[in-house]
């Protein structure tokens, strides 16, 4: 087993624990924004798409990569924007001010 793969597995396992710790503290109140926001984060595949689309490795890779860039960008831009739109609506009693300062 190569060393890079071992490192990747370490990262994966540790990230699982971080995920459980962080996500289980999110209250049900915010579960919908959590889904759309985390969804936008999973659009990080965009990074891989950019490399494939821009690698100049031949036409097939570039075409597939470009389609992937489109999909991943919708995911990222749409996800973060809609999450912000929702979170903007959450307000506390007795004050017109939003949650963000």
């Amino acid at each position: 087993m190569s060393e890079t793969l071992m490192v990747s597995i370490y990262v994966f396992v540790l990230a699982t624990f971080v995920g459980v710790e962080v996500i289980s503290k999110v209250p049900p109140l915010l579960h919908t924004p959590l889904m759309s926001g985390s969804n936008a984060i999973s659009g990080i595949t965009l990074v891989g798409s950019l490399i494939a689309a821009g690698a100049g490795e031949g036409s097939v890779s570039v075409i597939l990569g470009t389609i992937a860039v489109v999909f991943a960008t919708i995911n990222v831009v749409g996800g973060f924007l809609v999450t912000d739109r929702m979170l903007k609506m959450f307000k506390k009693s007795g004050g017109p001010r939003g949650t963000a300062s």
Binding site: S8, V11, F12, A15, T16, V18, G19, V20, V22, I23, L34, M35, S38, N39, I41, S42, I44, T45, V47, G48
Partner: peptide, 11 residues
């Protein structure tokens, strides 16, 4: 990618 994907996967 591994970190973000895993966070979303657990979520």
């Amino acid at each position: 990618l591994i970190i973000s994907g895993t966070l979303v996967g657990t979520s």
